[in-house]
Design a binder for these strands. Structure first.
Lengths: 202, 202
DNA sequence: ATATCAATACCTGATTACAGGTAATTTTGG
DNA sequence: CCAAAATTACCTGTAATCAGGTATTGATAT
């Protein structure tokens, strides 16, 4: 029987080696390559693409989501499984939109990873249930698309004036959005907003 | 020959299992236990303490540094090796002060981890060289004690007025410090300061 | 000893943020 | 189609930040 060929991408060498050993301990898996950065993978041409790519979301420079899109375009037959430190709606949604096949936590057991891979190879999708909007308590999911956009620009250190220019809207509008963001997140300054965003890995 | 007994502590199950396999692949190492939190380890009483504890720095609630102090007090004969995602002066200094025996990156190879453990068991210390103050380029190490203190209060979302009250100094002084921090870090707003601090894991 | 740095404090003016409204238009979902 | 939500915009006043100085005192290091 042919083994399931796997490529790993994570910025930490120890994780790569650990994961490799976990997978290789089963006869059915074969880790054919691993990469410490998206760029290195992109510099490689697979003559026969692997059955599965295992990606971390948070890798420097080019993140896992972008890498997933690249992979899915270049090797449409390969599956992609995210293994991430943090499982939140933003990440899971982004992974789904990038056409990934699964998203699991680094908090999973080795057993669960193996099961997930087998399942994905049978064309199943493995995603955590998204937290319900209405029962959410962190306010983040109540933010509109525009508010999230402005939030990012505030974090980037831009003033309301510059944000207004960039989005071709009034400075008043930007400040209204800012106020609404603050209300929804129950905070009262940009500094607190930036803290909130970092805590939620945005 | 007696094997080197090891206990692992990390908040991610996959890392624990990977590390365990890496170490167990050599006959000389034996992972006798692993824990996903400091609390769980603290709830355990080792009749014969392990030769070595491998700790992550950033584990929730009770961090690795505090755990190291606890371990060194309760099991003085055991060694402690930190394996951390981020290697910076703050972390390394804290580890040294907590009487740890080594500090290596999660970016290390499996081979290097094993070598480090062997070395530590021979009473050597394994620490990265601290970045030289004068040749530092990130500006962080050029900050004075007072500036670092004020930086933390800014990040906590406090105004200059409140910081002044808290430190029993003038509001003008706080703003002078703020300006000097900005100059040294080459930034121009509190939002950028908070971003900088998060990027440097402060 | 003296030069450098840390910590302190003050001044001014401009800009920005924050809090508290109100309100019109458009989009979206049921 | 209609209600709710999103996006837009404006007004006012207060508070805070930011940028540009100057200057004194004490510690520290060569």
């Amino acid at each position: 029987m042919k083994k399931i060929s796997i490529v790993l991408v994570d910025d930490h060498q120890l994780f790569l080696e650990g994961m490799e050993r976990i997978l290789e301990s089963e006869n059915e898996f074969s880790v054919i390559n691993n990469f410490q950065s998206s760029e290195k993978l992109m510099a490689t041409n697979f003559v026969s693409p692997p059955d599965l790519f295992v990606l971390d979301v948070e890798i420097p420079v080019i993140n896992g989501i972008a890498l997933c899109q690249y992979i899915k375009e270049k090797y449409p037959s390969s599956k992609v499984l995210f293994v991430s430190m943090y499982v939140n709606n933003q990440f899971v949604r982004a992974a789904k939109e990038a056409d990934a096949d699964g998203f699991i936590s680094k908090n999973s057991s080795a057993q669960y990873v193996k099961q997930s891979i087998r399942s994905i190879l049978c064309d199943n999708k493995i995603f955590p249930a998204l937290i319900n909007k209405t029962t959410s308590n962190n306010g983040l999911l109540m933010l509109s698309k525009r508010e999230k956009e402005i939030m990012q620009l505030i974090k980037a250190g831009k003033t309301s004036k510059k944000i207004a220019e960039e989005l071709f809207i009034s400075e008043f509008t930007v400040e209204t959005h800012r106020k609404n963001i603050f209300k929804k997140l129950k905070i009262e300054s940009s500094v607190q907003l930036v803290n909130f965003m970092h805590e939620h890995h945005m």
